[in-house]
Nucleic acid binder design. Structure first.
Lengths: 163, 163
DNA sequence: CGTAAATACTTTCCTGGGAAACAATCAACA
DNA sequence: TGTTGATTGTTTCCCAGGAAAGTATTTACG
């Protein structure tokens, strides 16, 4: 058997230059990698990242309005519309048109949605960089904290309280 | 004039739940934000992120092969093909078919490519979170360092040498 | 009340990026 | 040398996601 090494594989000595110091580039690489890992973990579950995060937020905020959900997850309203329609078709969420504003849509998890979420929730742990041996506990906590600060999100639990 | 505040704007008190602690989510938000900032800075320059990073890497690695460039930037070969074709059409890069392997393509910046790059390079600084007042110097350095570790990239300059 | 503007979501259309099939070239080896 | 298989890049086709226009409902105000 041959060494499956081609000239292409000397990726190591490509000089990245200022790219290696450009946050946007690093974030993009991290994004690709985390997405790959997601699809690896959720393989064949026909649940996509946006759907999982939508289910999570709906679960924590029953009767949240669709527009607010979209805004929270940085998903464009047009796309959220399709996404929710799909979740609705699969009976994972319930669309409620409130009487006091019939333009809007309120969202709740169905029983089925809750159980699906409970079932797949453990998989999220598999995505943890600590689990994957990429970072230490401290590094992981620090990284997330810095990212939250970068994007202007509220501090996580472990940063708010000291217990 | 009315307060442009609608019920939708109480985004602050949406409970993110475990999402707030999920690295993949934070990375996605950061990605969206850095992309927005890129397009803000490079507005109307018809240079897209992948094109800028390609130019940068080609500049630092003259005669790099197209496949290796794609692999380095995590851009799929099919897309790199179009991207390079576009840069070629605009005379920013030169495609060289080497005699010793006529399947492959070697890339160099043209004179025009170099000057375009030099001209827009300062804009990259505008994307720096320190410049934008989002992070301190130390936080920025730390964040990038952690991201590099997460994705398995070589440490940056400031981590290698201590001068 | 009635009309105009704002809001919330949806639909339509289009572009960018991915997967898979393809073409060209090179390497291996009888 | 000739044939098989691997490598490199390209083309084709398809789908997710974005922008803009459209629909329904509500609010503002004369």
């Amino acid at each position: 058997m041959q060494l499956a090494m081609t000239r292409q594989d000397d990726q190591a000595n490509v000089e990245l230059g200022e790219l290696n110091d450009l946050l946007g580039f690093l974030v993009r690489i991290a994004q690709i990698q985390t997405f790959d890992q997601f699809f690896e973990a959720f393989d064949m579950q026909d649940l996509r990242p946006g759907e999982v995060s939508s289910l999570l937020v709906i679960g924590h905020n029953p009767c949240i309005r669709q527009g607010l959900l979209a805004q929270t997850l940085r998903i464009k309203p047009a796309q959220m519309s399709k996404l929710i329609r799909s979740l609705d078709k699969r009976r994972l969420v319930e669309r409620i048109i409130p009487e006091d504003d019939r333009r809007s849509v309120e969202l709740r998890l169905t029983r089925k949605g809750e159980s699906v979420l409970d079932h797949y929730r453990p998989m999220l742990n598999a995505l943890d960089p600590v689990q994957r041996g990429k970072l230490s506990e401290d590094e992981n906590r620090l990284l997330k904290s810095l990212l939250r600060k970068l994007v202007g999100l509220e501090p996580g639990r472990e940063e708010r309280k000291q217990d």
